Amino acid sequence: MSNTENQFTVTFWGVRGSIASPGSSTVRYGGNTPCVEMRVGGERLIFDGGTGIRVLGQSLLSQMPLDAHMFFTHSHWDHIQGFPFFVPAFAKGNRFNIYGAIAPNGSTMEQRLNDQMLHPNFPVPLQIMGADLKFNDIEIGETVRINDVVVENALLNHPGQAVGYRVNWRGHAAAYVTDTEHFPDRLDENVLSLAHQADLLIYDATYTDEEYHSEKSSKVGWGHSTWQEAVKIAKAAHVKTLVIFHHDPLHSDDFLDQVGADVAAAFPNSLMAREGLVIHIAPPVMALEPRAIAAEIGLSV
């Protein structure tokens, strides 16, 4: 049995929300939009195809041929705009099972990924991709089994619809919950279910409470949550480790440092998502910061 078949590892390739935000003020946390990779029991699971998936793709070129599973939460631009630049999808011999829920307007994930690569938006169509792409429409609440890895999903509170995922394997679990907006008077039962006693909860905390309720520029109804709500969910669901994710593009490294300190004071077992961060759920070891693992995954940080 290979070493990877006994591991449950989570790697962050894109952690920013809404729009890619490169620049001198976002170097430490990163400016790429969402993409999270999980290596679970020998399987490779990829969540969302934001601009971070381009970097992931570059790191995978030396590991081809590839057999992986891609799960999309929804098709807002920041979660799919890196897919046309995912180089392994253009290489014959690679195989990707792609999962996503049908949108309220009836469009499938295949249709939406195809549409973003049509003229005048992109120079070449999705059909030019040489890899074996198998698209799977999943129902809300449906369970996907990949050998002994079980992936659950639940509806989130986001304009146009989004789903969150929970990955279960040999008594361990990681929840990927983005994009979602909390309710004003109660905790979201769907989020609590996904997060229940999870080893790791990755949660959309785009705003602070102050920004969310700002009298000048309220973010109510925008489809995102706050770090204060993340802490409430983590405590109520008895989560082992909380990861603050989907950082606002206006939040600088220094601002996120302060958010991280505030979160840690409220929930000590917490981390701020940053590009290159690797978390080993099984076997359990400390989370590795980007500089410690840069050589391992081919990143410059």
Results as ranks from 00 to 15, higher is better:
F71N: 13
S270H: 08
N157M: 04
I98K: 05
G42A: 15
I19G: 11
S214F: 08
M272Q: 10
S24A: 15
Q161K: 02
T143H: 07
V259W: 02
E211F: 08
P125M: 11
N32V: 07
G30H: 04
T108S: 15
Q7T: 08
I146P: 11
P184F: 13
A282G: 00
V150H: 01
I297S: 03
G221E: 14
D253N: 05
E110H: 12
K240C: 02
P184N: 14
G31L: 07
N147M: 07
Y165K: 02
Q111W: 00
G82E: 01
S193P: 03
V124Y: 15
Y99N: 10
V278A: 13
V144Y: 01
M272F: 06
L277W: 03
G276K: 07
P65W: 01
V177L: 10
V285G: 04
N32Y: 06
S18N: 11
P284H: 05
T143P: 06
G41W: 06
A89R: 03
V191S: 03
Q81M: 07
V40T: 10
I46S: 05
L61P: 06
V278L: 12
S193Q: 04
R274A: 05
T180H: 15
D204R: 12
S193K: 08
E152S: 11
Q7M: 07
E37L: 13
L113M: 03
S24V: 01
I140K: 11
V191E: 00
W222S: 09
T11W: 05
D257C: 09
L200R: 05
Q258N: 14
E229F: 06
P284N: 08
A273S: 14
K134S: 13
I297K: 00
F71M: 11
D257I: 01
E5R: 10
V243G: 02
D78W: 00
N153C: 09
G93M: 06
V259Y: 10
E210L: 07
Q58R: 06
M1P: 02
Q81D: 13
A154V: 02
I102H: 07
S252F: 00
W77A: 09
D48V: 00
R28K: 13
A173R: 10
I128K: 11
P65A: 04
P290N: 10
E210M: 09
G276A: 11
H224D: 11
Y203W: 12
K240V: 00
V285C: 01
G14F: 01
Y207G: 10
L60R: 02
Q228H: 08
T180I: 06
G260K: 11
H238V: 07
H74A: 08
E139M: 05
A230L: 06
N136H: 15
Q161G: 04
S217K: 14
N6C: 04
N32L: 02
S107M: 06
T143W: 03
H172C: 15
S107A: 15
H224A: 13
E139A: 05
L250A: 15
N269K: 11
